[in-house]
Amino acid sequence: MSLLKLNEATIRFGGLIAVNKVSFELKKGDLFGLIGPNGAGKTTCFNLITGVYKPTDGQILFDGKDITGTPSNKIANLGISRTFQNIRLFKALSVLENVIVGGFLRNNTGLLSSLAYLPGAINETEEMKQEALRLLDVLNLRQVANVRSADLSYGMQRRLEIARAMATKPKLLLLDEPAAGMNPQEKEELNVMVKKIRDEHGMTVLLIEHDMRFVMSLCENIVVLDHGEEIAQGPPAAIRNDPKVIAAYLGEAV
């Protein structure tokens, strides 16, 4: 059954059509790649899916529901979470606190309980903290739990973005260039982690990445965008030899 379905999703910024009639479909448990040259419209696709922008045309369906134009926070509650290409951590907060914010959407206690510091809010905060710590273990960030997130290395910030997104317990996780700025060893570890996220945490993953080796070795299915248009779709082997894709990348080794 399809988990996410873009149906001719389109968005215009003035005269520019950043995403033009893009359609693709993810099944539950997919590990899907979204690639394309700079400015192809990949991040904009994520922004459409997560409700940052409302599509000018077309629909986006998630879990059988039309989520076109639904506000971001509601979409997160429905089960889509994401990371940001231009890292958007809560800089002044610690690593642990960033992840707690991600898990907060499952809160059950009210504002008053928090303002009066009642057992409900105290216990819930403690539970969220424990849950966040477990996620930090998964992403290898436990030892920096109390460090201000702005003080982390670049690679760690990227991993924290993933931890925070996972804290919402999404059905679908969108990763925007998770390997950008990482060294080869970090990339290797990330590769393993993403597989684990899909296999052990049962999340469907859609990821944008420029590093072709990374995408080709990780993803089972790939969509290629160029100038907002979808130019190819298929397994890595087919994408690698697709003449349109090769042309879009101007003969770069794909």
């Binding site: 926070n73 958007r88 800089k91 914010v101």
Partner: peptide, 20 residues
């Protein structure tokens, strides 16, 4: 409490907050 962190989160980054 955890709820307070969401106030700080809004101060730090609104887009990321609503994405969470």
């Amino acid at each position: 409490t955890a709820r307070g962190l969401t106030f700080l989160a809004v101060r730090e980054d609104e887009i990321a907050s609503s994405a969470m």
